[in-house]
Design a protein around this nucleic acid. Structure first.
Lengths: 330, 330
DNA sequence: ATGATATCTGTAACCGGTTACACATTTTGA
DNA sequence: TCAAAATGTGTAACCGGTTACAGATATCAT
């Protein structure tokens, strides 16, 4: 491996001068600069990132901690974060905390040790309270931690309300909500929006817990439809969860959307791949990731933030798992 | 940040002794060890990973380069790699090359600079030929690079053959294969297996190119079914691609599996979420990832490899998009 | 008793960049 | 014309661990 001192020798200057050329910092004469540049070319020199990081206490990396890389929502988010990070010259380190608080802590510690410049946290888990003491710039994404940590979420409550409204407008008389994990702010907000609309309109409804996963949602829905065969509208708190609901319903002989309408939440490409394609409350996933990355970088570079809380609008995407019923029976 | 010298001062020993305690290397007296351990506790000292890496030229990290984190196949693989890596004390850095050769190169360079101990390459892209000169242990996963690089793949050819056989046994008379990208060994092998069976049995067939993506497969299938309305069996070279085919067929009023049977390739959880659930040739995704990780770690630790080429068996998983036709018409 | 070996510890150099500082030389401006 | 400011460059210390080496004791074998 070529070092800066090899280059220096080759160019007949000191290591300091080479460093100055590399960083375009301080005074360097034209001749020296040229000599260094040629030497760098000839020796195919690349400055050692680790040595740099050690002195600078900055690695130009940002950590992105996700709860479940297997849920397509997060890769989507990761891409956005990465795109923005790369344009600002940062590299992204993706960490899969697996919904495990301990693993999350370990990653945060490991990242700090690696001198990452900042961390974006998207964990499902409700974990710790001492985030302020982490000592590294942090941004919360699709998750609410505390008032001191800049936060990017979508309008979960309004989205939940919109989902309920859509089902009701489509003629559903008995709604179910497959809510997300308890204690998770985004899930609570979706529930709360749903509840408000449903209570206000007086539509029959039932709420059951299903984490965001497919199998669990399938099981829960099967049980739910058994107990309440007249349910004709389901709002699932994630698209994957909605797929589970559809699966269970179909297995019981219910037709979607004729017997049962289903609406998801997230707006991942996955929803379009289903047949029938999934109606959903879409989050602006890419925008959320991009915004979180930009906020973090501002934080890192000590630029002022206008706000600490950004709520991006969700959008109802009507596809084939819901449709307006004709006014007919009853 | 507490350094090793702070600890040394606190324990009344030299930094060298502290380092010896940390690494359990060399002679240290009981008393000294205890003093150091207490000092470490009291100061809450964590050795700096970057400094360590700089001297050791090893970061205990391994890089995993994937072509498209958005394709659920890869997160699945990543989890396996991570699981194994963690048990051996390595951290995984996930890089999304985006099917972009240049990005892949950049990542490899960046990883080398960070002193990663090894790299697992899974890229779709056919990229470069000088892998032997990378200078870092490497393993190819789901991709064939060169004879010098240990390789883990599944039995793509046999899988392709099994897919064709299954469709034929189920009574299909006119098969189509949505092949993967040209030049990609895994895609070629699947095609080759398919072709052999089809030629041997004399079944009518047509082959069209569709990368592994959903939209492309949907478009290609729509065109295909328009030109050849009598196609009654499709083998898609990925599960996501199969979903695209199903979508297109359904949009044209064809029923799956009654009018058209579809079989995918990969065996990602996604296939089960579809309605009807997807028949597929499943790769042992987790095993592949785990094996690649173990191979890489052996390589890193200079342990001997038994072989340089591991082909893991695929498995036909019959679900709802295929089914035996009764002998009836014609 | 005595040389050989094992145990213990500290000093200083090293990994590969970065930069404060000192010292020169050149340019500016009054 | 001469001090002040700007420009150019090298030395050496630093980031925070690691380790070769040397010197000091303790233990062992003969």
């Amino acid at each position: 491996m070529t070092t800066i001192r090899d280059v220096a020798k080759h160019a007949n200057v000191s290591a300091a001068t080479v460093s100055r050329v590399l960083n375009k910092k301080g005074y360097v004469s034209k001749e020296a600069e040229e000599a260094v540049l040629t030497a760098i070319k000839e020796l195919n020199f690349r400055p050692n990132a680790v040595a740099r990081t050690l002195y600078n206490k900055s690695s130009r990396m940002i950590g992105l901690i996700v709860p479940d890389i297997t849920n397509p929502f997060f890769p989507e988010l990761a891409r956005a974060v990465e795109d923005v990070a790369l344009t600002y010259g940062y590299t992204v380190v993706l960490c899969n905390a697996d919904g495990n608080v301990e693993k999350e802590h370990n990653y945060i510690e490991a990242l700090k040790q690696k001198y990452v410049d900042g961390i974006i946290l998207t964990t499902n888990q409700l974990s710790f309270s001492d985030e302020e003491e982490v000592g590294v710039p942090m941004v919360a994404l699709d998750r609410i931690i505390g008032s001191k940590i800049p936060t990017v979420v979508s309008s979960n409550e309004e989205g939940g309300a919109a989902a309920a409204r859509h089902l009701i407008e489509n003629g559903c008389r008995f709604l179910a909500h497959l809510r997300g994990p308890k204690g998770l702010a985004t899930a609570e907000d979706r529930l709360s929006g749903f509840r408000k609309v449903v209570e206000q309109s007086g539509v029959a409804n039932v709420i059951v817990e299903a984490d965001f996963h497919f199998e669990k949602s399938e099981q829960v829905t099967a049980k739910l439809l058994e107990h309440h065969p007249t349910i004709d509208g389901i709002f699932a708190s994630s698209d994957v969860s909605a797929a589970g609901a559809i699966k269970a319903a179909t297995a019981m002989g219910k037709k979607v959307p004729d017997d049962l309408q289903v609406i998801g939440f997230d707006g991942i490409p996955f929803g379009e791949m289903l047949v029938p394609s999934l109606t959903t409350i879409a989050q602006p996933i890419y925008k959320m990731g991009a915004m979180a990355a930009r906020l973090l970088i501002k934080l890192i570079e000590n630029k002022p933030l206008e706000r600490f809380y950004y709520e991006l609008p969700t959008e109802l995407i009507k596809r084939q798992t819901t449709r307006r019923k004709e006014e007919n029976n009853e």
